[in-house]
Design a protein around this nucleic acid. Structure first.
Length: 585
RNA sequence: GGUCUCGUGGUGAAGUUGGAGUUCACGCCGGCCUGUCAAGCCGGAGGUCGCGGGUUCGAGUCCCGUCGGGACCGCCA
């Protein structure tokens, strides 16, 4: 039993752990009154709750205890009388009788029921009274799941020789990447620290420093708009290793993720499969594929190589998805909505076809397709009567992205719904897109990422096709985290900066403190970071990371409980040399 | 920055074609009740329908604005 560890001077047992083996023992439990059921002056039932569960206490005299009073009850454990066992309660076979009740603290009635009914309460109210919300079984379970994951991750990393090193929270601002939180310097008015978006620079310097294997359960901060899977501050398992290749990193991180999952679910996940970025885009149209369902993108370009259908002629890439059995369900309105969705993403259009009962195709565009094209379309997509077929013809990346989005819209289950499908996505492109202002390529991951050794010859001639040694870990369509093998040679770093259009002067100004150490002997190294909030949410069966964070912010970045952020006193601002502009009209 | 959506006693909801702050469940307060268990019965209190403006004889309901919550897009190297 775990009871002894939780025994204190005030209690002998936890409420939820009392069972038939304790019968006839005198016990003392402490907790909150979950429910009181009175039957006149001579009998009352009090359900007492602590984080372990609920136990029924039988009171034989009048006592004024109400919802959420904090009480200490001493009594004798006894089996419940025949016919009064409560199968819905883990302690339902027994009760505590002959109770002596001591009220430790009275309480106002709670603003919402402290049980599963509060799942329906406005989240803002739950957050305003988070300390009551957390009394509930769901939140207790979620926070304890989180602790289990943290613990399993730590153990897994320690077992592999990783050393925990804490990196600073007050760091220099690096304008690339996510928007940062700034902290004014009092000693040097006008100067600012930034709160770290990640320990990226420091952990690489720890490799230069010979730590060899670093990890940290690190708080990271990004001042970007919030979402179901994003908070201003979030926790990452951050790790970095020296003298490794990509396989070494993936193996080490997999170990931690698998340990975390097993600690919560009790089931050890299979080895995590891998897919290249290119294949993920080809088959799923996204770089964070959800492998739990089919509806994969099917290549159709060859079929329409000499088509008469103008929308398809000359298209770089034509792909389709088969939405099984949905032909009837999708009337004109829904199809128009899908088309709008595709167009808003930048596609020229969306072609839809329905497979009729006799196996023929029905669509406004079917008259433009030859019999041969129609036959090949049906066979390639393995279409059957009742299916809806969606086709996009555009540039390769547009075709993939649009169909990938439609695939998720039409088929993706809630993120926490089993099974858990982990996947490593490797070989991300080194550069993604072009900066609108400078016309230079933008880094796909970050500018310290090692280019793929097979693509070095294309570096200057065709930079957009250069792959990198960067990789993401994806679970059920959520990006858990990403990492890469880093550049450790200053010459290679210069090449990448040049490709990004960053001059030597600019590089030294922005990253000087980071680049100089690399001239003193940097080992080959690589690392990874994955978001613990997201992993815990999925493992806890939640689809919102706020449910696994004790005190999260709302979508607008506020805390309804503390009212943060609050206005600063003028005195504080004066000391910091800061003046606040009047609000914009 | 944008699209969509929600806002009605402490909580969750309903509120029809614009016709009195109306209704339901839970909670709360008081009473009754010796085996209940999200107890039962009786009684009671509790609301500036988020806020502001407009249309109207009359607005929870229609219109405009605004504030707040949520989902998503942008953004998140």
């Amino acid at each position: 039993m775990t009871i002894s560890k939780r025994q204190t001077s005030m209690r002998t047992h936890m409420c939820g752990e009392i069972g038939t083996s304790d019968v006839s023992q005198t016990v003392t439990v402490c907790g909150w009154v979950a429910k009181r059921r009175e039957h006149g002056d001579k009998l009352a039932f009090v359900d007492l709750r602590d984080h372990s569960g609920i136990v029924q206490c039988v009171i034989d005299n009048a006592v004024d205890v109400r919802s959420e009073y904090v009480v200490k009850i001493t009594g004798v454990v006894r089996p419940r009388p025949d016919g009064t066992v409560n199968a819905n309660l883990s302690t339902g076979a027994v009760e505590i009788g002959e109770c002596v009740v001591e009220v430790l603290r009275s309480a106002e009635p709670p603003p919402f029921p402290v049980d599963a009914r509060a799942d329906d309460v406005d989240e803002n109210v739950r957050l305003q009274y988070r300390y009551i919300d957390i009394r509930r079984e769901r939140m207790q379970k979620n926070l304890r799941t989180r602790a289990k994951v943290n613990s399993a991750v730590r153990t897994a990393m320690e077992n592999q020789g990783f050393v925990e090193v804490e990196t600073p929270m007050l760091v220099p601002s690096t304008p690339e990447g996510a928007r940062e939180f700034l902290v004014p310097s009092r000693k040097e008015p006008g100067s600012f620290y930034a709160l770290p978006q990640s320990p990226q620079l420091f952990k690489q310097l720890l490799m230069v420093a010979g730590i060899d294997r670093y990890y940290q359960i690190a708080r990271c901060l990004r001042d970007e708009d919030l979402r179901a899977d994003r908070q201003y501050e979030f926790m990452q398992l951050d790790a970095e290793m020296s003298f490794v290749n990509q396989d070494d990193v993936l193996a080490a991180i997999s170990e931690a993720v698998i340990a975390a999952a097993e600690s919560v679910t009790g089931v050890k996940p299979d080895p995590i499969q891998r897919i290249t970025w290119r294949e993920a885009m080809e088959r799923f149209g996204v770089d964070k594929p959800d492998l739990r369902f089919g509806m994969e993108l099917t290549e159709l370009t060859a079929i329409f190589s000499s088509t008469e259908f103008k929308a398809f002629t000359g298209a770089e890439s034509i792909k389709g998805i088969r939405v099984e059995g949905k032909a009837e369900e999708f009337g004109r309105n829904k199809l128009d909505a899908l088309t709008d969705r595709a167009k808003k993403m930048g596609a020229k259009g969306l072609v839809w076809l329905k497979v009729a009962a006799d196996g023929t195709l029905e669509s406004p565009v079917v008259k433009f397709l030859s019999a041969d094209e129609q036959a090949k379309l049906i066979s390639t997509l393995q279409a059957a009567p009742g299916d809806l077929l969606l086709i996009v013809a555009d540039e390769w990346s547009m075709t993939c992205e649009v169909l990938g989005t439609l695939r998720n819209d039409l088929g993706r289950p809630p993120v926490h719904q089993g099974p858990y499908r982990y996947v490593w996505v490797t070989e991300f492109p080194l550069f993604v897109g072009v900066d609108k202002e400078t016309g230079q390529p933008k880094p796909g991951h970050h500018p310290f990422c090692q280019p793929h050794p097979e693509d070095l010859d294309k570096f200057e001639t065709d930079p957009m096709s250069v792959r990198s040694l960067a990789y993401d870990l994806v679970l059920n369509g959520w990006e858990l985290g990403s990492g890469s093998i880093r550049i450790h040679e200053p010459e290679m770093q210069r090449r990448v900066f040049t490709a990004l259009g960053i001059s030597e002067e600019e590089a030294n100004r922005k990253f000087g403190f980071f680049l100089k150490p690399f001239t003193y002997g940097a080992p080959p190294h690589g690392g990874f970071a994955f978001g613990l909030d997201r992993l815990v949410a999925i493992l806890a069966g939640e689809e919102n990371i706020r449910e696994v964070i004790a005190f999260p912010k709302t979508q607008s970045g506020q805390d309804p409980m503390t009212n943060a952020p609050t206005r600063a006193e003028n005195k504080q601002l004066d000391e910091l040399g800061i003046r606040v502009l009047p609000p914009k009209v």
